[in-house]
């Protein structure tokens, strides 16, 4: 059974008096411990889908089923409670946190809101969350703006896994990171997936990263899924025009094998 099933999702926006479909009849599903990547150029609707799935915005039509439940039917306190299982990591980890926050507060919030640990237990929970993502527990006392970009993205992942979610939406989560840090964060994500069986909806315009981490890929163009399937197979032999363009645009390193 799938964790997330999205059917016929549509969202229109108005631009200069004209109605256009940002997301147009999109359907997909994600199995437990699976990574589905959404690839496409900017403006293809990837981020809108992420926000729809998280109910940060509401669709015009369509259905979102999360863990067997009609996710669009939830509201108020029930919706807030269910959000524990469906988390998100943003592209820019600096913008994703309150500029006044400390690491401890950022991690304390989900534990407090979902009543996961008592006030007395929380500091030790926060310490173990930090260690889980490869950070030192002492980092909890630091302000978000004091730590490095890579550390911040680890904190964002720690916050996302604090409520033991079954699905995390990663919206360009590694695009702003240095290449050396990016590899470590991707390793961490794969590690968490294997141990906690978390599913990922991985949004990126970079087919190299998608090929490295995703099981399946759906390629978007102008709000529609134009092709989908096994990530390596699709990237090796794309059928759609936009898929071909994305592959052709990837820089190639013609390295002699030096090792």
């Amino acid at each position: 059974m799938s964790v997330l099933t999205v059917s016929n999702l549509t969202k229109h926006y108005r631009r200069g008096g004209e109605r256009f479909a940002a997301v147009d009849d999109v359907s997909f599903e994600i199995a437990p411990a699976e990574t589905l990547a959404l690839a496409g150029p900017s403006g293809s609707g990837k981020s809108t889908i992420a926000r729809l799935v998280l109910r940060l915005i509401e669709p015009d039509t369509g259905r979102i089923e999360f863990e067997g439940e009609d996710f669009l039917a939830l509201s108020g306190a029930t919706l807030r409670a269910r959000r524990a299982k469906l988390q998100m990591v943003f592209q820019d980890p600096l913008a994703a946190f309150n500029p006044r926050a400390t690491v401890a507060r950022v991690l304390d919030d989900p534990l407090r809101i979902h009543d996961i640990a008592s006030r007395a237990e929380r500091p030790s929970r926060i310490a173990s969350l930090l260690e889980r993502v490869g950070l030192h527990a002492a980092l909890a006392m630091r302000a978000i703006h004091e730590i490095s970009g890579g550390q911040r993205q680890r904190v964002a992942i720690a916050r996302a896994i604090a409520t033991r979610p079954s699905l995390i939406v990663l919206d360009e989560a590694v695009s702003a990171l240095d290449v050396s840090v990016r590899g470590q964060i991707l390793d961490l994500l794969l590690d968490l997936q294997r141990q906690e069986r978390i599913s990922y909806l991985f949004i990126s315009h970079d087919l190299g990263v998608i090929r490295a981490i995703a099981h399946r890929v759906a390629i978007l163009d102008a709000g529609r899924i134009v092709e989908s399937g096994d990530a390596r197979a699709v990237i090796a032999d794309p059928q759609s025009a936009i898929g071909k363009a994305l592959v052709a645009a990837m820089p190639k390193l013609n390295r002699e094998t030096t090792l």
Partner: peptide, 14 residues
Amino acid sequence: ERDYVAGARVIGMH
């Protein structure tokens, strides 16, 4: 409209 407000909604903050 900032990301951290979206982030607060995602973790289920009132």
